[in-house]
Design a binder for these strands. Structure first.
Lengths: 211, 211
DNA sequence: CCACTCTTGTGAAATAGTTCGCAATTAAGT
DNA sequence: ACTTAATTGCGAACTATTTCACAAGAGTGG
């Protein structure tokens, strides 16, 4: 199980495999071949096997994979076998939606703190959590040992907030703001950019029209 | 300008370049070198030049790129020089947030119809648009000639809705539901999967811990 | 108008990621 | 036990993407 460098695309697919396996579990399926998984998630079977091979041998030749077993391995590989505390910075439209998003909790990401700099929003309850003023951010990250921050602030505030989070000791940031953030390379950064996704669609529509 | 196949990563970066150039315009910057753009968005300068080279020669040797000019080219390449009507299917937490999301409108994506199958939600106003029952979906897509659909429905409903949209003549789908969708290859599909993003973060946190 | 500096555009090389093809292994049937 | 069918794991071949490196322009200053 020597791990040099796992392609990010592989990691993303592992997450999709894991979801598909969960679906199979629900349906009471016991074993699945790489081909079955491949069909289910829309990739090639060789791809599935290659992705899994980075982490070990999970299947049985001639048979396939035991669904429950492989699911367990994937959860563990993805670090989903324990919970993560997360802080949500920015409780506007998108932030509120994410705070209430079930997918977070389902995967063990627990929104334990929400902060915003708008006095009109502070005090609101989103699910079980009350929105606090941004001033307490650093303190909360430290005292609750929060590793993951989710940013849904306007672009103009993004870098500022990021610097504060980094200084407070955050380990990973999921950034929804349309701004390229600078972080030390000890901090893991992922960007989810809704405009980029729209624009890729637009590009493809535009291409199709021309050709 | 012969276009065989543009890597998707290139298209995504073009979108990011375009946003950065917009920022430079705001700051009154007239010209930018590939190196300046590269610094601004966190890629290599060679990457910037290579990406642009797919579409033509936009710079001046020894000088760089005129910001306004390159911005215009990118907008046009990305198909952002005219508006797109979009339909939003699913007006729950995430759907509502997206309906009110400014980034859509800013880039010329106009949410012209919102539908949901929950009677309690139908009739609500989100911005200028009233949520309509899902039964009118097909009709609206046809009569308004809507090309782009945004899906924020539960996984269980996703494929069903997709089939209806495809049949109604939709050209592109931005899917926020955590389900792999099957569409004919005449329809452009992009998936934005919040759980996948979280899980990639989790994976990386997990790795760091171990090494 | 020459020398110098800067920066693009682009083949070529290097790196990364995907697909192919098949030996190895397992189970099932006879 | 033997044969057949299924399916993994994995090296090798292939394809895609990124980086390198440099010739070709373009502006600047003397």
């Amino acid at each position: 199980m020597k791990v040099y460098k796992i392609p990010e695309a592989t990691v993303m697919r592992l997450s999709v495999y894991s979801r598909f396996l969960h679906q199979l579990l629900d349906e009471g399926v016991n074993t699945a071949s790489s081909e079955a998984i491949a069909q289910g998630v829309g990739v090639s079977s060789a791809q599935v096997r290659k992705d899994l091979a980075y982490f070990g041998e999970f299947g049985t030749r001639g048979v396939g994979y035991r669904v429950d077993e492989l699911y367990g391995h994937l959860k563990s590989i993805l670090g989903l076998d324990h919970d993560w505390n997360i802080i949500l910075v920015g409780a506007g439209k998108l932030g509120s939606a994410l705070a209430l998003y079930q997918g977070f909790a389902e995967r063990g990401f627990h929104v334990s703190t929400i902060v915003d700099n708008d006095k009109k929003i502070v005090g609101n309850k989103l699910g079980m959590v009350t929105v606090e003023p941004i001033e307490v951010m650093t303190q909360r990250v430290k005292e609750k040992d929060i590793k993951v921050g989710v940013l849904t602030v306007p672009a103009s505030a993004a870098q500022n907030v990021t610097d504060l989070l980094v200084e407070a000791g955050i380990k990973a940031i999921l950034n929804f703001s349309p701004r390229v953030l600078k972080v030390p390379n000890t901090v893991i950064l992922r960007n989810v950019d809704l405009s980029v996704n729209l624009e890729v669609l637009s590009f493809n529509l535009n291409m199709n029209k021309k050709n």
